[in-house]
Write a protein that binds this DNA or RNA. Structure first.
Lengths: 194, 194
DNA sequence: TCCATTCTTGAATGTGCGCTCAAGATACGC
DNA sequence: GCGTATCTTGAGCGCACATTCAAGAATGGA
């Protein structure tokens, strides 16, 4: 008997980063062994192949994002305040140049989904769950009387998600400093003020 | 003397399609020779290499999109009517499953930009020009008194562009039939009604 | 007609890739 | 402490890729 020596979460976060920077196809196994510190054999033993590693990285990414979402929307502050903080956080993340700005889910969706039904389904499901979480918070804001609108929570959540997709793509065009913030503020206004 | 035998625009549109479906990295030269009907030698003679073909395809794409934009915004109808038609057109394009739904510019931006400054600059410039065109039309709507708002035309154009980026990403999650239309309508309302 | 020029053709090339596997290292059960 | 099961290691495999190039085909000028 002997247990695996590496820390799976750390490995997956390294792989995640590599994939976000170079994309799936251009990230070679050599890149991945360097990024994760694992040797090819270990990677193939633990994740079957490069694609398996991507899938595992996507799952880890989802988990991390879930946790992040939880921290932003826990606590007793007003829901709309939380939304503002969440948006600001995303804007800052997009602006920080040194990490990959892109979201692994949308990046992988754009690159591999058309060729791979299983990954497409996995990503789509993750994005859907995120959207559901947002819809729940909007619903909560309504029942708290923070938000008075006729509009359906699901519709608003969809629009919010669309806005963030757009923001992320916009960020890749390297806009000037305050542009993303302005766009995010406008998005907030359009959704959360009557 | 002897002139080249192939039709450059046709070749570029074929290459464009191939790149949109599979992405740059996964589209092999074999795919490209099949798609374009050209032999490797001809491609290398005309475009230097695979990357050169991508660049040429991006230029052609920009030209085609410019022409399309021109046809939508020419004529004497109200500018806002033209915007609605333009949005509807984009939604329909996203919904048609048989062509690649993605825009070559954003797809290439997401895949290769971080590794290639020159292509990044080319794409970003193209997207900027598109945005400028939209801002001009919004300005025109204002001076026609179709649109009464304090908001800056450039800001509105940016928001419009962001919305379409978002719409395109959203489309890749294969939403139900009328979702994209609803999102587009909401976007139209948020921008063009006071 | 014939030559010069240019374009077309596609087999061949070298390279870098994803992946394998057998040998070595390590930790647990007894 | 020994045997065994499992994990780690990394050189090496075959393959598919982007790219080349020399021979062949077609064109136009004289």
């Amino acid at each position: 008997m002997r247990n695996a020596e590496f820390d799976q979460e750390k490995v997956l976060r390294s792989a995640m980063n590599a994939f976000m920077h170079k994309g799936f196809a251009k990230t070679s196994m050599q890149d991945l062994t360097k990024a994760t510190g694992l040797h090819p054999g270990s990677i193939y033993c633990a994740f079957e192949n490069k694609r398996g590693l991507l899938i595992a990285a996507i799952r880890q990414y989802r988990e991390d994002r879930n946790t992040e979402f939880g921290t932003f929307f826990s606590g007793k502050a007003a829901v709309l305040t939380k939304f503002k903080a969440y948006l600001d956080h995303i804007v800052k993340e997009c602006q920080s140049c040194d990490t990959a700005q892109a979201c692994l889910l949308t990046k992988a969706l754009s690159e591999v989904a058309e060729q791979d039904e299983e990954i497409q389904a996995l990503i789509t499901e993750n994005l859907r769950l995120w959207q559901v979480g947002i819809a729940e918070q909007i619903e909560l804001a309504k029942s708290n009387n923070e938000l008075n609108t006729q509009k359906d929570s699901c519709h608003l959540a969809r629009y919010f998600v669309m806005g963030i997709y757009g923001l992320r793509t916009f960020a890749q065009t390297r806009p000037e400093a305050d542009v993303l913030k302005q766009l995010a503020d406008q998005l907030y206004q359009d959704i959360f003020t009557v």
